[in-house]
Design a protein around this nucleic acid. Structure first.
Length: 376
RNA sequence: GCCGACAUAGCUCAGUUGGUUAGAGCACCAGAUUGUGGAUCUGGGGGUCCCCCGUUCAAGCCGGGGUGUCGGUA
């Protein structure tokens, strides 16, 4: 078992890279999709099931865990890995996304952000220093610097002020994190859809120096074309020998587009959240199991899928348990969606290794041409 | 048998003094969802206002009769 955090690119195809991140908790095959486990659980999934889908790493969340059950309690109980029974790598978001998503419940200044708890209204402060402390108490393997996820739409001046604040916070995060063998700190690029700001942000992050670099502030309403517009140059602004992490993205075609443009790590709530709202991702596109057309359909969701949901249950059953709001509906569809995402990543990695990414991507889009899995 | 109440969307119900195209919640049919507030939002279809007669310029609403449901009572 290696003692330090490391990253090696083993091959590439165009801008896309195949690699391995090494941590004391295990290896992360890149490009990697990271399921989101905000509150110390990938909702509706057992840790072993998450692992079985092919995940090497999951996310936790600083804001949510500091409120409940608190970072100090998790520390006393042996850290987040033991607490949630996930012995593999964990990446924790810093709370920066909640600076945006909980806009109505927080006040921000140079020092940091004061949140009013969405649970009981109590007051909680997050700063770069406190976020680093919480992520250390959690035992996170990959720590994210504290930032503000810049909202969209925004004007240039507001975006610049937000980016510059996040860069000052990045420097403070770096200083507070210190030097922790086997643990990594990632900086987060901001700058919205403005190229000069993205360039300036990347320059500041490189000057500070991080173990990995994230691209933040995307998939916040700008649309895929604008997001790809940024991804056409943003990964290239970051050090080639460090992992590049696109935060919070996305739909399957967003993920494919990001990997093609040189992204190594990606996370998104969509497969798990959609699993709880009856939406299934398949190679033929999205299927909404809530729709009445499934109620008499004895076929599996996707006959070619090897997950328990598709192997053992019919669309009619999935439709029924969705409509009846049975817990197994969330379990089965979340499992399927995570399995689908991990299969997609495995396909991308194999294609990069074989130098056949262009053909793989063409096949991916061709499979979605029909727009509905029913003709399968 | 008598007395009373009630009858409006699939369900539970609002509906003002008689006045524009009769509404809500749930259900139903769809859509949105991107570093998860186990969240939320957005559309859509759906009516013999129990039936008949009457009053009125105009009736879900007022009057009469009928039918049905529920309650009370001998």
């Amino acid at each position: 078992m290696t003692k330090k955090f490391d990253f090696h690119v083993t091959s590439s195809d165009g801008y896309a890279r195949l690699g391995v991140i090494s941590t004391p908790r295990g290896e992360i095959r890149t490009p990697a999709f990271m399921p989101v486990g905000t509150a110390a659980t990938v909702k509706a999934m057992l840790p072993g099931s998450v692992r079985a889908t092919g995940a090497d790493i999951v996310l936790g969340n600083t804001y949510h865990l500091m409120l409940r059950p608190t970072a100090e309690r998790i520390d006393r109980l042996g850290g987040l890995h033991r607490f949630m029974n996930w012995p593999h790598p964990i990446l924790t978001d810093s709370g920066g996304f909640q600076v945006m998503s909980l806009t109505g419940l927080r006040k921000m200044n140079e020092a940091g952000v004061t949140f009013r708890s969405h649970i009981d209204g109590s007051s909680h402060h997050l700063s770069p220093e406190r976020s680093m402390e919480i992520q250390r108490l959690l035992g996170s393997d990959i720590v994210m610097s504290f930032d503000e996820c810049t909202p969209f739409p925004t004007d240039e001046k507001t975006a610049r002020a937000s980016m510059e604040l996040s860069m000052r916070w990045a420097a403070r995060s770096r200083a507070a994190f210190g030097d922790r063998l086997g643990h990594a700190l990632f900086g987060i690029m901001q700058g919205s859809v403005f190229r000069d700001q993205r360039e300036e942000s990347a320059e500041k992050l490189r000057a500070i120096g991080f173990d990995g670099y994230a691209i933040g502030g995307l998939a916040v309403g700008e649309g895929q074309a604008a997001m790809f517009g940024v991804l056409d140059y943003a990964p290239g602004l970051l050090p080639a020998d460090r992992p590049r992490y696109l935060m919070g993205v996305g739909k399957p075609d967003d993920v494919v587009g990001a990997v093609v443009r040189g992204v190594d790590m990606i996370d998104c709530v969509l497969p798990s959240r959609s699993g709880r709202t009856a939406q299934a991702f398949t190679r033929a596109g999205v299927v909404n199991l809530r729709n009445a057309r499934h109620q008499d359909d004895p076929r599996p969701l996707d006959a070619a899928c090897g997950c328990p949901c598709c192997r053992e249950f019919s669309r009619a059953y999935l439709h029924h348990v969705v409509r009846a709001q049975e817990i197994i509906a969330a379990m089965l569809l979340t499992w399927h969606n995570l399995h689908y995402y991990q299969e997609l990543m495995a396909g991308l990695r194999a294609a990069i290794a074989a130098g056949g990414l262009t053909e793989f991507v063409a096949g991916f889009h061709a499979g979605r041409e029909c727009g509905d899995i029913d003709p399968l």
